[in-house]
Design a protein around this nucleic acid. Sequence first.
RNA 1: GCGCCCGUAGCUCAAUUUGGCAGAGCAGGGGACUCUUAAUCCCAAGGUUGAAGGUUCGAGUCCUUCCGGGCGCACCA
Length: 503
Amino acid sequence: MDALDERTIHPAFRGESELVIRRLEKLEEWRAKGIEPYAWRYPRRDVTEEIRRRFQYLEKGQESDYVASLAGRLMALRRHGKACFADLLDGWGKLQLLASVDSLGETGYELFQELDVGDWIGVEGPVFRSRRGELTVRVSEFKLLSKSIRPLPEKWHGLKDIELRYRQRYLDLLVNPEVKQKLLVRAKTVKEIRRFLDQRGFLEVETPMLHPIPGGAAARPFVTYHQALGENLYLRIAPELYLKRCLVGGLEKVYEINRNFRNEGISYKHNPEFTMLEFYWAYVDYLDLAAFLEEMLVEVVKGVKGNTSFTYQGSELDLSPPWRRVTLLEAVSDAVGEELDSTTPPVRWKELAEKRGITVEEGWGPGKIATELFEKLVEPEIWDPTLVMDYPREVSPLARAHRSDRFLAERFELIVAGREIANAFSELIDPIDQRIRFEEQARMRERGDAEAHAVDYDFLRALEYGMPPAGGLGLGIDRLVMLLTDSHSIREVILFPHLRPEG
RNA sequence: GCGCCCGUAGCUCAAUUUGGCAGAGCAGGGGACUCUUAAUCCCAAGGUUGAAGGUUCGAGUCCUUCCGGGCGCACCA
């Protein structure tokens, strides 16, 4: 077959590398032989993992009379003249193939030699163990299922370029096995969480992603526009206010595992869209939730990893309960070396913060400053799972005030390896109090705080009908999976993390 | 948003320190080879060094701007 020239190459491929051009030629060669290089179907009967398990017993050089039928992608070709070893990768793993003149005949073997690494094929043939001990299928028949016209990344070094790994995640998945491993851990984690909650009578619900008023968290939202209604909508920053409406409606235990969107910076622990679990449970408070979270995480982590201690980024992490508990004020007091409590005057808070290089912005009360001090001085230093109890009420507009200290809210966060994994509170169910908190937030918004909570009057009306006392908890799925997969970056556990559009 | 670093063949990397002919392995092409598994051996080929401009006799290398990315900080979960 003549080389393709400029006229016969599809315009899309002009300027492509010789490797691509060569493969386009091969594509035409298959067609010239009357073989369609993109098959409709292949009735494969076996998968590699199952074959591997079934024929474990074969001795070196021994051949079974079972004719395997496999399909997958060719990942390597080792040609030896009249015989050729190949690696076939399917969804379960790799298995070696041996094609030879003996098994395929002259014509068949010649055709096999036309295959490239990356091509999808179906094969049939008896299973045997090679002299070197590798379980192998002796190819007696094969079929090209899909021709690959772009070369795969190099087999030994693989794909290292981080940008390419994320942009072309399918290649990353193909050549870097740990990528798939991490996805499996992620899927298993979510499944275990669902199982845990389902078993305890929680109902999984789906609440809106498009919100007329973004609420449930302090964050800048993404704005979008509804043509027919002629109004702005916001991609949700949290499902909280809708899940609480469910409790007003009489659902006593609800949860949702879904995406939240926050229009903020991107970092190793932040992606603009991320997955959260939120659950709400009638008649319990934040102390019940703390115990429940311990139980849940232990069961989930055991289910996924087999035990509760493992290595994260080179250090040992042990999630077995009971976890250390410390109040936020205690932690901050320790960090600054001075007893601080809800009676500490605002000026003192301000002095302490400024001494630590924290710029105190207008409108920050002692609660906000205490939280800032905590996040700056304490949180990054926490390694072992720690329940930080009793956040200031000022920074918790949806949480119930603490029963014995109005400066505080009944709220805790679970901190592991320097980052927040979960956030929970006794929910604020008093509609009057909630209205006051919203109004405080609205004043902050007016002062220019784009992350302050917007007033949601429909939510207030729901509360006015009566919401049962309840505890609610949010857990960052991505961050939990980061811990379980020993991933430094959140992008490692998100299949297609956000990148700028390709230039 | 700010700071530091990076961008060389399809992939993984040299050459940058001190400006002086852009190189290797893998992949691809030709040849040899029926038990290899990073197969091996021989031969040939493969490049707008992210883009544009500048300095210079000469720029992958130095300077400026832009594009893309990584890391750190800030914001946040």
